[in-house]
Computed example of a mutant assay.
Amino acid sequence: MASDALFIGLMSGTSMDGVDAVLASISSTSANVIAHTHCPYPAPLLAQLQTLCTSGDHEIESLGIVENGVAEVFSQAVEHLLATSNVNAEQVTAIGSHGQTIRHRPTERRGYPNSRFTLQVGDPNIIATRTQIPVVADFRRKDMALGGQGAPLAPAFHHAMLSSPDEAQIVLNLGGIANITYLPATHSKNLQETVVGFDTGPANTLLDAWYRRFHGGAYDVSGAWAVSGSPQQKVIEACLQDPYFSLHFPKSTGREYFNLTWLESRVPDLMNYAPADIQASLLLVTARSVATAIESFPSAQKVLVCGGGVFNQYLIKTLSQILPRYTIASTATKNIHPMHVEALAFAWLAHQYWHKLPGNMPAVTGARAAAVLGSLVLPI
């Protein structure tokens, strides 16, 4: 299993800004990106996806439509990767497709037994038949069947590819939701240390949603609007008092929880504040919740950041101020572009499936056992 093989990873996260796709050469010890592309969702499809993140009418009809629509965009991303890299479909071992999460309920609802579930759309049958490449998909539900949260899954990849023999590190993904992975030094003499990973709370999802309410464009570039506002301590504290932040890991969440409806419930007098002040406050909610999680692992001194939030200069500066004893750097310092990490993780998970190796980490997700994750769909 030492030889490299080509895999494609497809990932669209909680920001729902479209699919990130990578073509990568992967072995048991390395994962190297050959090509990358990003395909945004068409506006009508994005609107349907955002609507499906909360309960409403005609959900089954909408689900069927977005299931196919997301698969088409994912397929287009694969075709673009192959065309720009001069690689034929026959040369690719498999595609790892995360799909698009539209609902993630990792814990039981009171009074509703068997109510834990996770749902990703993007029919792998469409992707496989259109690209003529085997597709591994549905990575999360095996972990949930084993009692886990089904998320986060990237920590297993972080452990395999980003661990250091000499120093403990933290990988921080600033997507729509923020999550961290604690990676102990692989040569650590502390036998009690293990890899830990969990969602800390919102990263970009609230910032982006609030920005779009008042501006054109998808997000607050470099945090410029947040810089113009004054953080409101009452708003910050009201948000951080949400029970999710004090939950012990394993834990995971999504935009179906952290959204503008949630914000309005935490801050009933929301519209009494200047909009830029709310943006500045939300940035502090992200920074402080992330910092609290990171500070619970004092043996680490380096934080490797990936995801779209790495380009929010104000957010990164704020994190550096709150965490002065940590060195904060992009995953690019480890030769993985910060926008490639998540898609590369699902290419790696497809590789794990192909070789019948575990893709989850029970200490991270809470599953009863490590397991091979995913289901295979063949082109014909």
Score class of each variant (00 low, 15 high):
residue 3 S to F: 02
residue 3 S to E: 04
residue 4 D to F: 02
residue 11 M to T: 07
residue 24 A to P: 02
residue 24 A to D: 02
residue 25 S to Q: 06
residue 29 T to V: 07
residue 35 A to M: 04
residue 37 T to V: 09
residue 43 A to D: 15
residue 45 L to D: 08
residue 49 L to V: 14
residue 52 L to T: 15
residue 52 L to M: 15
residue 56 G to N: 07
residue 58 H to Y: 10
residue 63 L to N: 12
residue 67 E to S: 15
residue 69 G to P: 10
residue 89 A to I: 12
residue 93 T to Y: 01
residue 95 I to L: 01
residue 96 G to R: 06
residue 96 G to N: 06
residue 100 Q to H: 08
residue 105 R to M: 13
residue 106 P to N: 13
residue 110 R to F: 06
residue 112 Y to P: 04
residue 115 S to V: 15
residue 116 R to G: 09
residue 121 V to D: 11
residue 125 N to A: 15
residue 126 I to C: 09
residue 130 R to L: 05
residue 140 R to N: 12
residue 140 R to W: 07
residue 148 G to W: 00
residue 166 D to Y: 02
residue 177 I to Y: 03
residue 178 A to R: 05
residue 179 N to Q: 12
residue 182 Y to H: 14
residue 184 P to C: 04
residue 185 A to N: 11
residue 187 H to I: 03
residue 188 S to Y: 00
residue 197 G to N: 10
residue 199 D to R: 05
residue 200 T to F: 05
residue 201 G to W: 08
residue 202 P to K: 06
residue 203 A to K: 10
residue 206 L to A: 10
residue 208 D to N: 13
residue 214 F to M: 03
residue 215 H to G: 06
residue 217 G to P: 14
residue 219 Y to R: 08
residue 226 A to F: 00
residue 227 V to W: 01
residue 248 H to K: 12
residue 251 K to C: 13
residue 255 R to N: 03
residue 277 D to L: 01
residue 280 A to L: 01
residue 288 R to H: 08
residue 303 V to G: 10
residue 306 C to Q: 12
residue 309 G to I: 14
residue 311 F to S: 15
residue 322 I to V: 15
residue 335 N to F: 05
residue 336 I to K: 04
residue 338 P to E: 08
residue 340 H to D: 11
residue 344 L to T: 15
residue 350 A to H: 08
residue 363 A to M: 00
residue 365 T to W: 00
residue 365 T to F: 00
residue 368 R to C: 05
residue 380 I to K: 11
